[in-house]
């Protein structure tokens, strides 16, 4: 359309494949991890250095695709010369660091963090956290039996700087009724460990919609829309990226939630297949979780450059149209 020769024939190949301008290679630094000298990239965090050496380091609020907020503190390690433990997920390596990942101090802090979470939050749909609890021999029961769950909206109405003095005989929790206010997903904040991931995914790290934020303060801090309004009244655009990053099942597809309620959710009978979204031309990878030849959940892999694990409402929830008529009924789906 520009030049006749280019209209009829593809252009010649460039001399070499085009590439991004080179960036300075990060230096290699030497650190000591658990007594072993290790050479690692200076751009790495302690967590990356540990994982590159196969050193198991628990994380809950960390995700490759999100800015580390280092709030759960379950990844803490001991750093020689540091008064406190440091979060492996966000602390960058520096030359000569001496790091201990399995000292009694480290184990104590990790165990206590896990006990604090398990004694205040329902971790029943957080298999990773369950593994850590066993691994660190956490005993959440020693804080007393859980306090009575709060009624709907009570925690959302709490004001900062004021609380009723507890008797202390029961452990306060975040237990409260599930928020079901739309057809696509539910919010069960009894299961929320306040890892900030959903806020990051809704905000600057992915969707930039900012429909939710952390509200309140201290133990009363919670994830909330403005004024705790229902999602359909909020700025939420149902991309579900919050669900994609939630580590505890507090945010869940309504289909999964209802199947779990009905006792029909069975991950052992599910397959996961990667394909491409049927809608616009961006080309997002969808992982279709299928049970009994029905899509029950959609996720997206983190390591795909197009999505970094994030989707929009259509890709995440717009699959029902393939669930057509019953097997023996009309051969075509309802339009």
């Amino acid at each position: 359309m520009i030049d006749d020769s280019l209209w009829f024939r593809p252009p010649p190949r460039p001399g070499s494949p085009p590439s991004a301008p080179p960036k300075a290679e990060p230096a290699v630094v030497e650190v000591v991890i658990d007594g072993q000298k290790v050479e690692v990239s200076s751009s790495w965090t302690i967590l990356e250095a540990c994982r590159s050496r196969g050193i198991d380091t628990p994380t809950l609020c960390y995700l490759e695709s999100l800015t580390p907020v280092n709030v759960c503190r379950v990844c803490v390690v001991e750093l020689a010369g540091s008064r406190t433990l440091v979060p492996a997920c966000s602390r960058r390596v520096e030359p000569g660091m001496e790091i201990r990942t399995d000292s009694p101090r480290v184990r104590l802090s990790r165990r206590m963090v896990l006990e604090f979470l398990a004694s205040s939050v329902d971790l029943s749909t957080a298999p990773q956290a369950q593994e850590y609890l066993a691994q660190y021999e956490a005993r959440p029961e020693r804080y007393g039996s859980p306090a009575t769950p709060t009624p709907a909206g009570e925690r959302d109405a709490r004001e900062p700087g004021h609380h009723h003095l507890p008797e202390g005989t029961a452990a306060e929790t975040v237990a409260q009724p599930v928020k079901v206010d739309n057809d696509l997903y539910v919010r069960d904040y009894s299961k929320c460990i306040l890892c900030y991931k959903c806020v990051e995914a809704c905000g600057t790290d992915a969707q930039n919609t900012f429909a939710i934020a952390v509200a309140g303060r201290g133990f009363d801090a919670r994830i909330s829309t403005e004024g705790d309004i229902p999602l359909p009244d909020s700025a939420c655009v149902y991309c579900g990226n919050c669900i994609g990053v939630c580590p505890t099942g507090a945010l869940m597809f309504r289909s999964e939630y209802e199947m779990r309620q009905a006792g029909t959710w069975d991950e052992s009978r599910q397959t996961s297949t990667d394909t491409i979204c049927p809608y616009c031309g961006v080309g997002c990878t969808l992982s279709l979780h299928v049970q009994d030849n029905r899509i029950v959940k959609v996720t997206s892999p983190m390591d795909v450059e197009v999505t970094h694990g994030h989707l929009c409402i259509k890709g995440r929830f717009g699959f029902d149209f393939v669930h057509g008529g019953e097997p023996d009924a009309e051969p075509t789906r309802d339009g």
Binding site: N182, D183, G318
Partner: peptide
């Protein structure tokens, strides 16, 4: 939340 003539998106319950 919608797409073209709606034949695909009408299948799900967009809030």
């Amino acid at each position: 939340d919608e797409y073209n003539t709606g034949v695909q998106t009408s299948g799900y319950a967009s809030p």
